[in-house]
Amino acid sequence: MSGRGIRIEGLRKRYGEGDTAFDALKGVDMQVAPGEVVGLIGPSGSGKSTLLKCLGAVIDPTAGRMTLGDEVIYDDGWKVRDLRALRRDKIGFVFQAPYLIPFLDVTDNVALLPMLAGVSNEESRAKALELLTALDVHHRARAMPSQLSGGEQQRVAIARGLVNRPPVILADEPTAPLDSERAMAVIRILNDMAQKFETAIIVVTHDEKIIPTFKRIYHIRDGVTDEEAGEGREFA
């Protein structure tokens, strides 16, 4: 694999100790190349959310190895010190609901991440506008989140996830609240952005409409993943 993308090997996560111990992840292997969009599918309680939280550096795995680009971020108990900076600079998040900051306009919602990383306000806003233009919501740059439609909000959320050019984006049910047309539009955007910015994108979903669009799919059941080839269907 090249210098970007994500790879996890033998990832385990145990909650509790002794008799109450529960293994949510039992040795997950996964690899997503730069520019690739893969699906992660599984029933409730299968370990999807736990895997997402481990991938997002929100909780620590119990064992295994996780590599982001060239950087090992977790290796059997060892982990990088500044997980906050790691999340800010190396991982993009797109949620089921857009969760935009309601008191910031569209531009500043996107520009906030580079600002947090110490980039000047002007440069951050320029980066944000570039992405908003790429996602075709630049005409709403000064609007507040409450003034946007659901689809526009989700595109702004994608722009926020991409603005620091992270090697990986974790998308948690990004199309759940959208109708078919808008859901397909979001998937098209994610694919376009993955190609354009060489970003590895993992889409956690239950959405039957978009599952056929993935070329590769990871099924997770009882804390274990199986990889299968997807249909890779063209977007409608």
């Binding site: 906050r84 900076a85 600079d89 991440l113 947090l116 990383a117 926020r160």
Partner: peptide, 16 residues
């Protein structure tokens, strides 16, 4: 609360 969780997730410092 939800926005604060998002801010923390995307790397906002506690002191901010």
């Amino acid at each position: 609360i939800r926005e604060i969780a998002v801010l923390k997730l995307i790397g906002t410092r506690n002191r901010t």
